[in-house]
Design a binder for these strands. Structure first.
Lengths: 245, 245
DNA sequence: TAGTGGTCTAGACCACGCA
DNA sequence: GCGTGGTCTAGACCACTAT
């Protein structure tokens, strides 16, 4: 069992437990520690680093919650087996495409600052008939149309412009205004494309669409955005990590 | 701000922070506390209940992590806005159907205890060509066929029987053997049904299927099960809660 | 200035798994 | 019996927000 070289900076504004957790995370994910390896125990580590046991414990807990480590009473702490440790993230398709190295592009098909849509209003916590900002965008991956994105926002967002939405993603625009979606509820399904969707997405045959409706909320639980999206099924799937921890 | 009536049983084996967290959770979800309401502060609560502040804090943290409460430094703790608080769970379709009040039924189409499937073997952390247990089941909701479930398990599970699988769900059978899936990685997409799938699922027209492949792991991160499922899209969708916390 | 949550410490005792 | 993680205490100081 290796004693990892850890550097703690007590003058940093970063909490000690987080400094420690970051360095431990690095050691696990860069392979310094292999799956199954025993982990230095809490008492030894707190002694070695001159940290209190609760502080060390909190750092280790962070890794346990992420599934990187397994704690067993009476046994010790060990590095968890393989398992891709990427968590489901709250990102946009835009980010996903960039990550895959494809060059996404967005075309705003319509931008209407006073629409009515009862399903969207309800999702946004507003009364039926409330006026909403409605956006319809077409997402390309390279030259190929990939998805039709329909989004509704609260009326306060009525100063959005086509340019903003086409250069940055919707989520980037929201973040720039201090709005940070934190939790989202998504429903994923499938259906056949309508004639118009087939035309817009250049779908020749009777290919299916993957559908996703999403209600996004900030840390308070206040609704931020409601979306109803559809993707060409041959081009898109959704990855999710489900956890009982 | 109400002082909630909390009962702490110090003779119980249940940790104090968990007893407290459960009662606080109940107060929030049954509407005793409304969204936006101020929450009793940590010091007052620890004093009132004769618990240490870290213990109270840990209980509150549990609710914050679930998204029920919002803590703001200098402000206080408040109840989060609406937002359905159900978390994405690692359950089977079987459980989902029972919850919806439909009566699910399972028919085992085949059970083969020494199959080869390289994709499944890789997902289970075994060498290509390794012998696996393969199960194909047909899931009904009431009288209607809903899904074809294909699962692969490690060779150690070669004593499964058709009866077991048809009376309990697969996950119940695993749990009964002390195997507890904790984390799963799912990929959800859509495609058209093959002729055979159309026949088995009684699909008349060119309806699409929702597809889901799932790799499930236990708390150690050891692979437990690999599944490749398809559902009638008109009958099924997947709910997911994505969180950045 | 007063009150809140955020962090941290130095102990303590218990429950569990193993030799 | 011994070492591990699991829980709990009684303080302390700090950073932030409101008034």
């Amino acid at each position: 069992m290796a004693a990892l070289p850890i550097q703690i900076d007590r003058t940093s504004p970063v909490p000690l437990y987080h400094q420690l957790a970051e360095q431990l995370t690095a050691a696990v994910s860069n392979g310094t520690l292999r799956p199954g390896d025993a982990f230095e125990n809490e008492l030894a580590m707190s002694d070695r680093l001159s940290l209190s046991r609760p502080t060390v414990r909190r750092a280790i807990s962070e890794l346990v919650n992420k599934g990187l480590l397994v704690r067993r009473r009476g046994i010790g702490t060990t590095v968890a087996n393989q398992m891709v440790h990427r968590r489901a993230e709250l990102t946009s398709l835009y980010d996903d495409l960039i990550r895959e190295g494809r060059t996404p592009r967005t075309e705003v098909l319509s931008l209407n600052c006073s629409t009515q849509d009862d399903r969207a209003a309800e999702a946004l916590g507003l009364k039926p008939g409330a006026l909403l900002v409605a956006i319809v965008r077409l997402r390309y991956a390279g030259d190929q149309p990939l998805a039709i994105l329909r989004n509704w926002l609260p009326p306060a967002m009525d100063d959005l412009t086509t340019e903003l939405l086409e250069t940055d993603g919707l989520y980037a625009v929201l973040r720039a205004r201090g709005i940070r979606p934190t939790v989202a509820r998504q429903r994923i399904g499938a259906r056949n494309a309508t004639a118009e969707e087939r035309r817009i997405l250049h779908m020749s045959k009777a290919e299916p669409l993957v559908t996703m409706t999403r209600s996004a909320y900030d840390a308070d639980g206040s609704p931020v955005e409601f979306g109803d999206h559809c993707y060409r099924a041959d081009q898109y799937s959704v990855d999710v990590i489900v956890s009982e921890r």
